[in-house]
Design a protein around this nucleic acid. Sequence first.
DNA 1: GAAATTTGTAAAATATACTTGACAATGTGA
DNA 2: TCACATTGTCAAGTATATTTTACAAATTTC
Lengths: 67, 67
Amino acid sequence: MAKNLRLKAARAAKDMSQQTLADAVGVTRQTVNAIEMGDYNPTIRLCAAICRALGKTLDELFWEEIE
Amino acid sequence: MAKNLRLKAARAAKDMSQQTLADAVGVTRQTVNAIEMGDYNPTIRLCAAICRALGKTLDELFWEEIE
DNA sequence: GAAATTTGTAAAATATACTTGACAATGTGA
DNA sequence: TCACATTGTCAAGTATATTTTACAAATTTC
């Protein structure tokens, strides 16, 4: 799987660390890191929570770069 | 969680049964049923596969009705 | 109105998302 | 140059997504 650079960029645009974003959505830093690195396949609720935290939609951050 | 009526409608619009859609995306009928009934929290890859099978995007089928 | 298909549901098993704790590498500010 | 925050990674554990088998109620089709 490819890295999620859109997520990384959206997080950078809000000046949030992986830890800060993780806290905001209620998961661990490792989980956020793994998603950015493309290591796995998060649940849609987590994706939606991340999108809300970053002011983006699912299509903007998660559509099509998967698979 | 609320039912996913947009998914049910999109499937109906393609005249697919839960079983047919499940086969198309490589999961069981029960999984598709549970998603439509709002019983749980699928992975984003599965959501994306369902969207592709139905000619919709993540935002169209899965944005915002969760939570 | 019987037969076949579709849907909703459930319990037990398996696969995998996510956590916890930890360590090294890099960058940053004092 | 030293403390500190950030990132990437790993191994072992826990929570939960998904499967398998199965059954009954609706719905469709003839």
